[in-house]
Structures are given as C-alpha cells and as structure tokens.
C-alpha cells in the first residue's frame, strides 16, 4: 500500500510541477498555432512572443511549440493542431519540401497555413500568406554601409556566404549590385570582391574561412558576412592576425551579441531584421484573412541599418 501512495505522490508532484490547470473560461475567438524552425534561436522566439501579444490583442489564444529542426516532429505537431481544430497555423518550415504532406492535411481540414521568414516549396501545398524580410534590400544596405566603411578608398573585400539558404544568397546579390554600381560610377575608388567563401552561417567556419583568406590577401580591407555568428568568427581571425584597424566588418541580422560587437567597435554595421514586426504583421494578415478582407499575400519587411550611433542609443546593451 505504501508503495502505491508513494507512487501517487510522485505522480501528483509531477502534475503540480507542470502547473497544469484547465484553461480559465474566458471567451476566446480561437487558437493561432506557431511552429518555427527552433525556439533555441532567439530570432524565432521574438517572432513567437510578438505573435502571442498581437493575437491576444485581437482576442485569440496562441499555442507555441518547438520542432527542434526535426521535420517529423513538425508534422506530428501539425496533426496535433488539426485535432485541436486551431483557427490558423503559422509555420517556419524545417524542410521546405518534406513538410508538404502535413500542410496538405491541414488544407484538407480547411485550416489556413501561413509561413513566416522561410517559405514552403512543396508542390500542391496551399499557403495562405507569407511574411519575410526583404533580404535583397538588406543586402543593398550592407553594400552602402561597406562603401561608407571604406571611406571612399575602395579596397579588397571578402564575402562570407551561406549558399544553402536562399535568403543569404539574396543578401549577397543585393550587396554585389550596390558594389557594382559604385565601381562603375567611381572607378578610382574600386571595391574588389576577391573571394566568396562559405562561412556556414557559424562562428567556427566564419573564423576558418577568414583566416584562410587572410593568408591569401594580406591587404584585405573589409569583410561582409551574411549573419552575425560568421561575422564574429571573422573578427576572431582578424584579431589573431592583429589587423583590427585595417579590416572593417559588415554583418547581418542584429542579434544581441552582434549589436554588442557593433557597440564595441568590432563590427562596423549590420542591416537588421525585425522579427518583432514580422510576428505582428503575420497576425494582422491572419486577422484580415479571417475577416475575408484583402491583404498582401506576400509581405516583405525592409531591413534597416544598425551602426555605432544606433548601438550607443540602444537601451538593451551594456
């Protein structure tokens, strides 16, 4: 008997631990479900938090789950959403093709699916709307920032890219376009792209690729990295070679450590994305969809430039 009591006690403890209680009966209009790539990346967490607050403002509840980059988990979550009969699903696909059957299952039940940040490319899967960053325009901002950073002298530039992600390819394309026009108009201040290496969007590879490039190009003047981790990796390599004063870095994203690096003068500037705006915008689009009103099927939110001035005024930073 004692064992049973012990066991029940343990189970009860677990229940208390989870803090479960039946949802208080406030009259809500429905549930908006959100399954991003991963919640470990603060970018998607910020999107989620803003989805939640915007949804609440409009009388909707939010369910936020984490597929941990696993598409099997994500499609299981779709099944759960369907049996919960949620009002709408917001998705950042873990895999732009494999998530197709799950989206189709939601379509079949009449639940509208919206994507944020990354798109779903599966054939026959109906996506009711998309909100993302205008990465091409962000890349152009990076190009303009690069011209400013070099102060009209021109010089050799390294690009750390990440070709697997379409968004990062667009950033590099926008960057190159601005540099090309600049070179045509000011041939005396020519900016020469000497290498495009894979930084894998990560510190380790960003560091390695930059270290290699420094061996080949002693007089490198600047680096453009497609996100903050690879920009910070590049800084480590430059610091090791003691060339902080010679080489300028332009990053992308505006994650907290990237912003801090701008304040500390390690990185010159970042075009930053606005996950908060993305979260709010996608919910506003869903509300319009549900009211049967017109809305932009694809909304691209422009990136803005974040430099030392912005960092000095940023209350988030030390």
């Amino acid at each position: 008997m004692k064992q049973i009591i012990q066991f029940l006690g343990l189970t009860a403890l677990l229940f208390v631990f989870t803090g479960c209680s039946p949802s208080t009966e406030t009259k809500k209009k429905g549930v908006i479900a959100y399954t991003p790539l991963t919640l470990s990346n603060p970018f998607f967490k910020v999107i989620g938090d803003n989805i939640k607050s915007e949804a609440e403002k409009n009388g909707y509840e939010t369910v936020m789950v984490d597929p941990d980059m696993d598409v099997k988990k994500q499609s299981d979550q779709f099944d759960d959403f369907i049996s919960q009969e949620v009002t709408a699903i917001i998705l950042v696909p873990c895999d732009r093709l494999s998530i197709g059957p799950a989206v189709k299952a939601a379509n079949e039940k009449g639940i509208p699916v919206f994507t944020v940040d990354a798109k779903c490319a599966a054939e026959g899967a109906i996506i009711s709307g998309h909100v993302g960053t205008d990465n091409f325009q962000g890349g152009k901002l990076a190009g303009t920032a690069m011209i400013n950073a070099l102060g009209g002298n021109g010089g050799k530039v390294l690009i750390l890219d990440f070709k697997k992600a379409n968004s990062c390819v667009l950033r590099v394309n926008g960057f190159k376009e601005v540099i090309k026009t600049h070179n045509e108009q000011n041939p005396s201040e020519k900016i020469e792209i000497v290498a495009e290496l894979d930084g894998n969007g990560a510190r380790t590879e960003g560091y390695q690729s930059t270290a290699d490039a420094l061996q080949a190009h002693d007089d490198l003047a600047a680096v453009f990295a497609i996100n903050d981790p690879s920009a910070l990796g590049a800084y480590t390599a430059i610091e090791e070679a003691e060339k902080q004063n010679q080489i300028k870095i332009i990053g992308f994203d505006g994650q907290l450590d990237g912003k801090q690096a701008i304040k500390d003068g390690k990185v010159f500037a970042d075009p930053i994305q606005h996950p908060d705006k993305m979260g709010r915008q996608i919910v506003q689009n869903i509300i319009k969809y549900l009211a049967g009103e017109e809305f932009e099927k694809e909304t691209l939110i422009p990136a803005t430039l974040y430099n030392k001035n912005s960092a000095d005024k940023d209350p988030e930073l030390k």
Partner: peptide, 27 residues
C-alpha cells in the same frame, strides 16, 4: 508528447517533464 502539445506547455519544460516521467517509470 501529444498532451503537452495540446496544452501548449513551453517546449523546454516539455523536455524536463519528459525526462522526469522516464525516471519515474524506471524508479
């Protein structure tokens, strides 16, 4: 897994609970 998704328990907490249940069962 399903129950926690239906109740919308935060994902990091899901892992903690998941691990606890395994331990309880082995206990």
């Amino acid at each position: 897994n399903n129950g926690m998704n239906l109740t919308g328990i935060e994902s990091h907490m899901q892992k903690v609970i998941y691990g606890s249940v395994i331990l309880i069962a082995v206990l």
